[in-house]
Design a binder for these strands. Sequence first.
DNA 1: ACAGATATACGAAAGATTTCGTAGTGACAT
DNA 2: ATGTCACTACGAAATCTTTCGTATATCTGT
Lengths: 131, 131
Amino acid sequence: MPKEIETPRPTNGELALLAALWQAGPSTVREVLDRMGNKEVGYTTVLKQLQIMTEKGLVQRDESARSHIYRATKPEQDVKRSLVTDLLERAFAGSSASLVMHALQTKKASAGELREIRALLDSLDSKGKRS
Amino acid sequence: MPKEIETPRPTNGELALLAALWQAGPSTVREVLDRMGNKEVGYTTVLKQLQIMTEKGLVQRDESARSHIYRATKPEQDVKRSLVTDLLERAFAGSSASLVMHALQTKKASAGELREIRALLDSLDSKGKRS
DNA sequence: ACAGATATACGAAAGATTTCGTAGTGACAT
DNA sequence: ATGTCACTACGAAATCTTTCGTATATCTGT
């Protein structure tokens, strides 16, 4: 049996910082802070959050320079997937179709996006046939 | 301009109770408790939660009988939609397509569900053309 | 060497969520 | 009428999350 999958489930605040790290790559506290444009927040707040996230294993830091450099440890895809899984279980009884329907009705996707989704459906179909 | 949409954003615990109410309809504390099969939790915990949710307006209660009867005030669809919207903004930069892709890759939907999703895509397409 | 700017460390307050214990009240059977 | 049982009210502990102030260390230019 494969090892139990570890599911990072960042909170709102943590997710905002992770987003900055995913977008810009490994960054110092100040760089992350500067990227949080709209959100008014103190320097030490971001620092503390990143320290806590380091303890939790959500990020790692390189302390070789005076300004420590933080990077997200979990791939963006994995974290997002676990967030989706979480919502799926909590609110949609595990039915991804139900979630998808809500998502598509909530905010209209562009024609291009809809095409992408169709393509994905096609590939899932062929997979389904194969197995 | 239409009135600002009110977005109920229940927490995890609240959502579990709402699920019970959506599933079974208006219920007493004990009925809700009995429905929480797997989750080990005290009677007064559920009671207190429902009381708090009443203050928040997530549920209403009928106090005419000795055992108060609670019912969810917000339609299941609305609450789920706002949960999806929330996740969408927090983690997927508002791109429902991106969320949908993650959802479909996370847990495979049945062939029937995939058909439903296609049908939904079709209807969105025709809407898109019209507007 | 010193002043000023910039970093990290640490503690702790403030808020929100979750949980439960205790007390009080009403119903009901004996 | 009285003991038992189920219910609500209330307060508060326990966690978690978020935020920031203060202390201390390090760099940088003059």
